[in-house]
Every structure is written in structure tokens, then in C-alpha cells.
């Protein structure tokens, strides 16, 4: 099949960028989207032009490295699918495909389709963990976790930190990402001791970098792991509770 590509090219963060157009004549429907870009890059190098930079690694939809806006949709047209798992059979012969990097204030463009998502790591650093230094753990089965709780926690923990939720959000908010981590840990019995300090620290850090949530719902639609927007409600509830709980703790320590 043939495709016509319009790809965002930008040499560096502060350099101006623009679209360039390319035609590919020999694309197999069994190729993944990234394999199609590999072919483009081979072709560009053969012509003496610099290949398109894009992040990718596992190509199995789990590392979260890849991600681009494809025809205005984060990770492209197929629901619940990261860019690397999108295949060309989902496009028509002769399709025009526009490819852009994630667009969000918190994600600066590094080059072409590659962006800096470091702000997501900073949210985790602020509190996205359970403090359990190595060696101090009790016997694993000493703490039963109801199956429904473990399953719900796992649903949230499936997040791959790709940033599609942020890119899809008209406000550039990272609520779905943050809520997924808050829910993963706050639902579990092991996560209870730090529950309210965690949610406060993570949300406060999130707000330093990202926009606000207006319950638009684009994040859930774009998420390659189909993480539910319900987790945002859970995070918001815990955040409100934290305002009281954490204040009481401060009063006690004074």
C-alpha cells in the first residue's frame, strides 16, 4: 500500500519547526506503524537526509517510550493501542497521515517527535511509592489483599507512563497519570500508612508542571491501557480528605 506522510520536523527545543511531506510506495499492511517509520528513515538516509527522531524501544506496548499524535489522535485511531502496536492494516491504501509530537506545556520537544516527559518522573519522586526499605518486609502472605482490591490496584498500575493522557487533554493535565499511581498504591493495604501524605505530595507536584482537569475525558479515550477516569475521582476524594488529615497531623506534632 501507499501512504502520504506529513511529519513534524524540529531540530531542537528552541529551534522553529515545521511539517515535511514524504511519500512511501511500498508499505505492507502487516507492518507496525513504527516499522513504517523505520522504512521512511531508511529512505531518508539513502537520500542523504537526516532521519526522523522518535522515541521507541520495546515495540510491545509496555515500555511507554513511543507516542505521537497521528491524525490528531494520541497513539492513532485504534483504541487501547500504543503507537508501536498500531498496524498499517488500520489505514487505507493512499492514506494521508499527519504525525506530530506530544503537544503539552510540560513536555518540551527534544527533536522531531521526541519529547521530554521528565515531569512525570518528578510526580513519582514526590510520593509515588510505598516506603519499604529492602529487607524490612514481612512474610508475603501475612497480609491478605482481597482479590477485588488487588485487581483494581492492578487496573491502575497498568499505566505505562507514555504521556498520551497529557497530550490528549486540552488543558495538558496529568490527572489520569497521577491518579493511576495514587490509586494503585492507595487502594492496597500496604499503601495506607502514607495514603494522605502521598496524594497531597503527588498532586502538589503535578500542579507545578501540568494543567488542571476539567473532566473532558479525552485522557481515558487516548490511554493505550484503557485506564478508567474513575481513578481521578478517587484521587480527588483522597486529596480533599488529605487537607484535613494532614492538617490534624501537623497540629499534633506542634
Amino acid at each position: 500500500m501507499r501512504v502520504h506522510l506529513r511529519v513534524w520536523r524540529q531540530p531542537a527545543a528552541h529551534a522553529p519547526g515545521g511539517f515535511e511531506e514524504y511519500d512511501l510506495d511500498d508499505v505492507s499492511p502487516d507492518m507496525s506503524f513504527l516499522e513504517m517509520l523505520d522504512i521512511l528513515n531508511e529512505q531518508l538516509v539513502a537520500e542523504g537526509r537526516e532521519p526522523v527522531a522518535f522515541d521507541h524501544d520495546c515495540r510491545e506496548g509496555i515500555c511507554g517510550s513511543c507516542g505521537m499524535m497521528i491524525n490528531g489522535q494520541a497513539h492513532g485511531p485504534e483504541r487501547g493501542t500504543a503507537t508501536c502496536q498500531l498496524h498499517m492494516r488500520k489505514f487505507d491504501d493512499g492514506a494521508h497521515i499527519v504525525i506530530e509530537p506530544w503537544r503539552a506545556a510540560a513536555f518540551t520537544v527534544i527533536k522531531d517527535l521526541s519529547v521530554d516527559r521528565g515531569a512525570l518522573d518528578r510526580i513519582i519522586q514526590a510520593g509515588g511509592y510505598i516506603t519499604a526499605p529492602t529487607g524490612s518486609a514481612p512474610e508475603a502472605n501475612s497480609l491478605p489483599v482481597p482479590k477485588e482490591v488487588a485487581d483494581a490496584s492492578m487496573d491502575a498500575a497498568a499505566c505505562i507512563q507514555c504521556g498520551a493522557c497529557v497530550a490528549a487533554c486540552p488543558n495538558g493535565a496529568a490527572h489520569l497519570f497521577t491518579a493511576a499511581k495514587v490509586a494503585h498504591l492507595n487502594l492496597l493495604p500496604q499503601g495506607q500508612p502514607e495514603r494522605f501524605t502521598r496524594v497531597q505530595a503527588m498532586v502538589d507536584e503535578m500542579e507545578r508542571w501540568f494543567g488542571s482537569c476539567t473532566m473532558h475525558g479525552e485522557c481515558e479515550a487516548a490511554c493505550p491501557k484503557e485506564i478508567s477516569i474513575d481513578f481521578i475521582a478517587l484521587m480527588n476524594r483522597d486529596y480533599v480528605k488529605a487537607q484535613f488529615k494532614n492538617r490534624r497531623l501537623i497540629a499534633q506534632s506542634a
Binding site: 518486609a137 512474610e139 489483599v145 482481597p146 488487588a150 494503585h184
Partner: peptide, 21 residues
């Protein structure tokens, strides 16, 4: 010890209905 450590960190391993691993 690894399983103990990972459970304490909040790794959501699969569980039986009684809550055990």
C-alpha cells in the same frame, strides 16, 4: 525474600479469593 519485598512495595500480584497469593 524477593516476594516478601515486592508485596511490601505494593506489587499487585494475582490473588486467590481469600486474599492470599
Amino acid at each position: 525474600e524477593i516476594i516478601d519485598q515486592c508485596v511490601a512495595q505494593g506489587v499487585p500480584f494475582a490473588r486467590e479469593y481469600g486474599g492470599l497469593l
